[in-house]
Design a binder for these strands. Structure first.
Lengths: 342, 342
DNA sequence: CTGTTAGCGCGTTCAT
DNA sequence: ATGAACGCGCTAACAG
């Protein structure tokens, strides 16, 4: 039942020392091929399984990588996690998932726990409240490799895997303009987060390109929750002129707006672009007035994991600081055709 | 930088023994309140943090619970995980997430890894391929507490947290019938999984109640992927009579069917009920022809975790086998109103 | 209540 | 290329 075979057992059976067995099992070059083969065979025969806990203690690192996201149930994040899990699995790492629930306090606590558990590295997308970086700097000083994805902070020597939000915002807005919209509302999020600043910058860039005057009152900042979307829709409708387009910096708020429009019996504007929406199974049948910008979550997860694993192996070899790496992706998906523009 | 304070350091500083410190830090009742206080104060002062790895090795258990789901990116599962994570977090446990991707082979490997990592317990929803239980029985023999949720196997002494699928299937079908449907197609999944058998049983029960003759050709079994839905829709449309309703055992296949209908320019049947759909943010604006059965993923996660934690603490105290616990939940959400029937 | 002793199983020195 | 010995930091006996 209980697996009790240790390296000592197999050493005894082979009349050699446990340290040799240990070396062989770690594929050390300092063991002859012959004994290595003998040991591996015996280990197999005896059904040996390395005691991960002891190994962890000795090395004082685990083979686990920590992941921190605001919310697992947001489709974008679960897609990213999916990608992370897959890449990590292939490399023999476990993944431990944590949710900050957009709270800085929780984010701090989580990082503390992860460090206490000696994770090999951390992948994180910061919470909306994360305006102080002490806990992140602490993690850096502690020597734990980490990487941002999607939402990041500017920290020297820490890489990020990002979507090109400016381009996404630009494409979303231009899409509306090309469909004849002039007065385009924009739901934006906390300006502390680069993703929202960038999406807004994209919005303005598109207006400029098409010589549409910028109206500050069309930009509504919120936490982009569903009821923020509803409130925003209400506010936009109360303007003295009609809006004919809406670019929301995320899906949740856009959906809130859609619901509000419907509830009030108001005809939804013909074109609404949403950045941040990537709910694949639904995107094809969702309300026709929605167009979405796809966030390739899965790939982001994979890429981020690979980069992190690189850093993990490098940092253990040496102390080389890798420069800031930025991966940029963006694509616009049209609702009906599921065809990609761009 | 590195946290080096051990229980020995603080023992030395207080001129007592390390074991007493250990006991105090574990809040053992066999240390006087006074010394306990002194120790805690000193530990705090010295910035002590328990070395989890050493603790794990000594106890040969971690404070981590493993979770296995078919796919993280399915909204239902990510909701469950959310609930698990929250309940576990409150109890001081970490959560390690794994995806079987519906493959028995992966499920086996994952369980092996989890056991090797000495997780405190496991929560799992089996893959569609899981028709052999050797790996699960192995885990049981190994003494690792575990619990099924949503998709389960009948294993003596192992509890499950389930949705009342028969009732759900019944409600979905009756909903269609009450809306005037007579010829109701049904997408079902692998019959090895109880959830699909039960949903189908609910379908038949509703037909019987309303004295609608059962037609075997209306039931289509598949893996319920999106293209299965499309294929199924095609098949149903090729019948010599018209269908006027569709009850799909999951959301993905239903969406596949919807897409097919639209692509072919066919008018979607007025009422379509979907069991297994719980994509909250979208449910309110999804295609009007869809009605969904809500699966309360978050709560299931919480409940399952609490039960597991119970078993974990009991099994360490004693070897009591807890009987099969079944939690049943089901509710039908109407699209427009978001109001719950039942 | 507290101290003493003894490992958990592994990886890694230092020898040879 | 292999063996001997040590210790990672903690907890669980067993004393007293």
């Amino acid at each position: 039942m209980e697996n009790k075979t240790t390296i000592h057992d197999i050493a005894k059976a082979l009349k050699i020392d446990a340290s040799t067995v240990s070396r062989a099992l770690n594929n050390s070059p300092r063991v002859s091929q012959k004994t290595k083969a003998r040991i591996l065979a015996k280990a197999n025969e005896m059904g040996y399984q390395r005691n991960v806990l002891a190994s962890n203690l000795r090395k004082s690192v685990t083979n686990t990588i920590g992941v921190i996201v605001p919310r697992i149930s947001r489709h974008f994040f679960s897609s990213v996690i999916s990608g992370i899990e897959e890449a990590a699995y292939d490399a023999g790492y476990n993944v431990i998932i944590c949710q900050s629930l957009e709270q800085l306090k929780r984010e701090r606590k989580i990082i503390e726990t992860l460090l206490a558990n000696r994770v090999a590295g951390v992948l994180l997308s910061v919470s909306m409240e994360t305006v102080e970086f002490d806990h992140l700097l602490n993690m850096k000083n502690n020597g734990t490799p980490f990487l941002f994805f999607d939402r990041h902070c500017e920290i020297e020597g820490i890489s990020s895997v990002l979507i090109d939000d400016l381009q996404g915002g630009f494409e979303a807005t231009e899409h509306l303009i090309l469909n004849g919209c002039k007065n385009i509302g924009h739901f934006s999020g906390p300006q502390e987060l680069a993703i929202y600043r960038n999406r807004t910058a994209g919005y303005r860039k598109a207006l400029e390109k098409h010589k549409i005057p910028f109206r500050p009152e069309l930009i509504l900042r919120s936490s982009l929750m569903e009821n923020d979307g509803a409130e925003g829709a209400k506010t936009l409708l109360s303007l003295p002129y009609d809006i004919d387009g809406l670019f929301s910096a995320n899906d949740v708020a856009a959906i809130g707006a859609m619901k509000y429009f419907k509830k009030e019996g108001i005809r939804v504007p013909e074109n609404v672009a949403i950045v941040g929406f990537s709910n694949e199974p639904v995107s094809g049948i969702i309300d026709p007035s929605l167009t979405t910008i796809d966030q390739p979550g899965f790939q982001i997860g994979q890429i981020a994991t690979k980069l992190l694993l690189d850093e993990i192996s490098n940092s253990s070899k040496d102390n080389i600081i890798i420069g800031k790496t930025t991966i940029q992706k963006s694509s616009l998906i049209e609702r009906d055709s599921s065809r990609r523009i761009t």
